[in-house]
Design a protein around this nucleic acid. Sequence first.
DNA 1: ACGATACCAGACAGGTCTGTCTAATGTGCG
DNA 2: CGCACATTAGACAGACCTGTCTGGTATCGT
Lengths: 192, 192
Amino acid sequence: MSAASPRVSARDRLLAAADELFYAEGVHTVGIDRIIEHAGVAKASLYNSFGSKDELIRAYLEGRHARRRNRILTGLERWSTPKDKLLGVFDLLAEQTALPTYRGCAFYNASAESEPGSVAEEVSATIRAWTRDLFARLARDAGARDPESLAAQLMILYDGGLVGARMDGDSSPALVARSAAAALLQAATTAP
Amino acid sequence: MSAASPRVSARDRLLAAADELFYAEGVHTVGIDRIIEHAGVAKASLYNSFGSKDELIRAYLEGRHARRRNRILTGLERWSTPKDKLLGVFDLLAEQTALPTYRGCAFYNASAESEPGSVAEEVSATIRAWTRDLFARLARDAGARDPESLAAQLMILYDGGLVGARMDGDSSPALVARSAAAALLQAATTAP
DNA sequence: ACGATACCAGACAGGTCTGTCTAATGTGCG
DNA sequence: CGCACATTAGACAGACCTGTCTGGTATCGT
């Protein structure tokens, strides 16, 4: 086994630095030089590992994607009933947006900075489809009359919470979104 | 009267070009040269009129702010009852997001591209405060039990509609937001 | 007609960006 | 040992960026 050469590979250090800087300051604003300096790595290592800045951005976004997915899936184990799980997504959102490092949705931010057809929009479409499916499944389990329709509404609330927390510099939008989700779930499960 | 010299002033042509290019491609991505070329104007005219790119960005965002405000205020005259006016905001949102040129919220996009404390965040805070007040007023007129609380929820829906339409490349999120707003309004006006 | 003012065209400086390339320096493995 | 390979530091090219400056042109009010 080769375990502890430079303690952690240049690739991983680059990814960690990119994650921190890209998220905090934007994928366009942060240059290659800032990243390799922050990672303590040579420029050639970056191009050996990723090939281009664009591919580093893709790796950064895919890492964010995997972590959000994982955070939600494991976080939801806290709750047992379908209704609590559904609202739990918004509790987890509130936890995220309350972090002092929170700067909005990494995928939307990167999309706003990039041209149409960029890797940012590509990865964004993936995570949005996953989130939509998650909400649809939770809505169905919670007994919604029209799960797809409720999922679409929850998607709006989730996006609104993500964005509002960034723009207002405050995590309360996530809790407002939770209260709205509770009201909509109530309306979608009682008799019309 | 001085009416038709170069038909329209260099300043106005610059503003029109900036509005189009900044919105379509981002304030950071689009350079000065692109703008003056698109406006058919000399570089010196830009710096005479605005002083810096940052001030041009401010003028661009303030123009967007004024137009959105105006579009909503005049658009709401279409409806007469408070409830219809409140939901009308989302109808107008659906009209906007259905435009082929729609590329998301100009203020959020510009904020995502800029550093903290930039003019983008400054102007964004202004329009968000105005929107929140608008919703609070409409919620009060519509007889909501707690207008401020409903306004906060509507704000989430509005943000979610703006963002969702951009990310999905489709205007249906605005209509979903409208349906959610109707449900929340219903819940906020009937007896608890 | 004439001066002021607005405007145009474009060179230029000084900086930053991505990406390539040259060498030298470890570091593991047969 | 000796070979292969990952890594490092940094110069360099070529493009693009903002902002300044010069000089020439047109259009206005008077």
